[in-house]
Design a protein around this nucleic acid. Structure first.
Lengths: 249, 249
DNA sequence: GAAATAGTGTCTCTGAGACAGTATCAG
DNA sequence: CTGATACTGTCTCAGAGACACTATTTC
């Protein structure tokens, strides 16, 4: 049957009519140090009581999924989006009929990247809801924790998407302020790829071609001052290859 | 509001309840010669009467979106999926409230790749439906034709996905029989990238590392016989870079 | 033989990776 | 001063791209 025709009113019996609840789930990432964190909610109710779950909510009648994702990002995390740079994009849609045992809920998962200075995570204020989100280290959660519903699939998909995306784009900079030093960007790559073997010198050479040097410098607690850059090109060409071998942290 | 809680039964008023019709749209690609084709339906009814549209249909109550996409692929195109290799994957979800002027329809778009020998397109048998699909050259359609609903966005997204994907995977081989010669694979790349400047020798060297030589040969009408290969590795490393400059056909 | 095609050889150039070397900061 | 860090220099090696060349087919 084609959407091109107006058949759905004729062909479907009332009980068979394919109507679903449409939700969004959010995978909210932020980096501190060289560790990638994700915002999760500890469930207090059946089903999956005690497990960790992604924040999310329903799509309203007057908004699309991306709009709902932005709204829920603010509502669920209590974030002041005026104060934090954020990037939201669609990830994938999860539509297994039994993914929520209570009723049919189709969820459009979204990937949200929050900018941090790499030293403190954005404060997650409990919104109007009781269950508030907290930050958890992503790789540890995937190794140790039970996740509600199909949220492990969603989180894995999000992590793979991000890990792949930063190979050929500067999406990693979405996790940093508009102006940043190269060691901050390097820490983001190390956090997402869960590796520590990125050579600082080669990283600098590779990245500077796609960045603009502001001319200013910042100094960490020790060592020489680092230049401050902004993103010039959204794409890296040729791509950066993820280290395959070597010790994972 | 979190999916972690059972709020949706309490918080939503009946009229406000976020219930949508869930559909799939299909972008079905196949290659003949060095031209990428897509299966489209010419609309005979309002709205968008006379425009081209993607085939699609609704998701049933007992299936997920991918299952619906496979079912609709068979129903809408009348294809005998036992006789054609096919690959279907989720593309993206389109959820703008006004994308269908008649009612709210959220569509999970899927990318479907049909295997051909590169000489003839799979026959599209009119199914039970009146409006049957036909093959159209993709790049010409995008240049010249009006597309119904947001189907231009969907088709563009599909083409970009495929064009990017074949840079670092052997997804292009999904558009060919299980065994194929390198000139066939090269034609697929040229079709998707809409280019003619792929050097045959370098292409051979690049690809053979990820392929298995069956030892057999095939001969075209002219020239030396070509070896027959199968896919060994799903991933190309390092990736193949798409030619940016140069004359497009 | 002529034309077309498959596949290899070869050369150049870009860029990744390893790692040394230099400059600049804090204490 | 020492230690830490930022960045550049340098060398090697893999691989992309251009293109010549050979081998094998049809006509």
């Amino acid at each position: 049957m084609s959407l091109g025709e107006n058949r759905f009113l004729e062909e479907y019996e009332p009980g068979d009519y394919p109507s679903v609840a449409l939700a969004v789930d959010l995978v909210v990432f932020a980096v501190v140090g060289s560790t990638l964190h994700v915002a999760l909610v500890r469930r207090g109710e059946h089903p999956f009581e005690g497990d960790l779950a992604l924040p999310g909510g329903f799509v309203g009648t007057e908004e699309d999924a991306l709009g709902a994702a932005w709204r829920e990002l603010e509502e669920e995390t209590g974030l002041d989006l005026g104060a934090h740079r954020a990037h939201v994009e669609q990830l994938a849609t999860f539509s297994s009929p039994k993914r929520d045992p209570r009723m049919r809920v189709v969820s459009v998962a979204h990937l949200a990247l929050l900018a941090t200075d790499g030293r403190t995570l954005p404060e997650l204020n409990p919104g109007s809801d009781a269950a508030s989100a907290h930050w958890y280290p992503v790789h540890a959660v995937l190794a140790d924790e039970e996740l509600a519903f199909d949220h492990r699939d969603i989180l894995t998909t999000a992590l793979e998407r991000l890990a792949g995306r930063i190979e050929y784009t500067l999406t990693a900079a979405k996790l940093l302020p508009e102006e940043f030093a190269l060691y901050q960007l390097r820490h983001v790559y190390e956090a997402v790829w869960n590796t520590a073997k990125l050579d600082a010198g080669n990283f600098t050479r590779k990245m500077t071609g796609a960045l603009t040097d502001t001319g200013r410098k910042v100094t960490r607690s020790k060592g020489a001052p680092a230049s401050v850059f902004t993103v010039k090109d959204e794409y890296l060409s040729p791509p950066m290859t993820r280290p395959t071998t070597g010790p994972e942290r």
